[in-house]
Write a protein that binds this DNA or RNA. Structure first.
Lengths: 120, 120
DNA sequence: ATTTGTAGTTACCTGGCAGTAACTAGAATA
DNA sequence: TATTCTAGTTACTGCCAGGTAACTACAAAT
């Protein structure tokens, strides 16, 4: 899930991609945003994710310092998640991705199967 | 590789993650940058990638309009890749990720296995 | 005549990601 | 007494992403 070869790279950018470069983490970070949220809420808000994968992703995000986890000694259990300073600092980047996509996204008209070969 | 459920989402951010949210595409886009580059060069510069996966990723990036592909009618074949306007517009975002990582990356001291439970 | 060089594609195979279901604790509620 | 509620974890399983090796086309060099 986290790519160890990427995380062990001597390139800081590659390492960054090694930690946040998968499909779930940006989604989760975006969903959490600036609020405090419980596990069950995340599970119902994030579409198509299983509890197992959600738990794995949250654990990794916590290990990588993007997320803070508060567990209360209660029964039934209650656990709250919120972004750390590092996680919050990542939000504007996600915002930029949103804007970038809205600006440039277009319906896929031509597939790359139509690949053209240019004259020599 | 590309996540179809994500790409079919009605959330533009989710769709964006569906297209560029995997580990290879940001790396490839970053490696290409502002230059024009050939397939073989990419294959030797991008670490740990196989030609098969590289070809797949490039095709998807082209389909999604991030990449332009110029094939010359020569033998042996010559193909050049360069970022489109959309692809170039994504570079600053990668730059931000780099800076973000450099600012906040820390050695992993405590694992999440040390998870603390706070008093009720 | 054989080798080399390029940009892929194809067939084949395997490891690991991810889905599902079952299970936990213990208090509160019906 | 039995059910419910939460936040996971574990075991089992299936499928596909991704790796490897072989192959193509043809010209130019050896």
């Amino acid at each position: 899930m986290r790519d160890d070869r990427f995380c062990a790279s001597n390139c800081p950018f590659t390492r960054a991609i090694g930690t946040i470069g998968n499909k779930w983490k940006p989604i989760i970070i975006n969903v959490i945003g600036t609020r405090t949220i419980r596990f069950g809420q995340l599970d119902s808000i994030v579409p198509h994710i299983s509890r197992k994968v959600l738990a794995e992703q949250l654990k990794e995000l916590e290990e990588d310092g993007l997320l803070e986890r508060l567990a209360y000694k209660e029964l039934p259990p209650r656990v709250e998640y919120k972004l750390s300073e590092k996680g919050l600092a990542f939000l504007p980047i996600l915002e930029n991705i949103k804007e970038w996509n809205c600006k440039y996204e277009v319906a896929l008209t031509s597939k790359a199967t139509d690949r053209v070969t240019y004259a020599k």
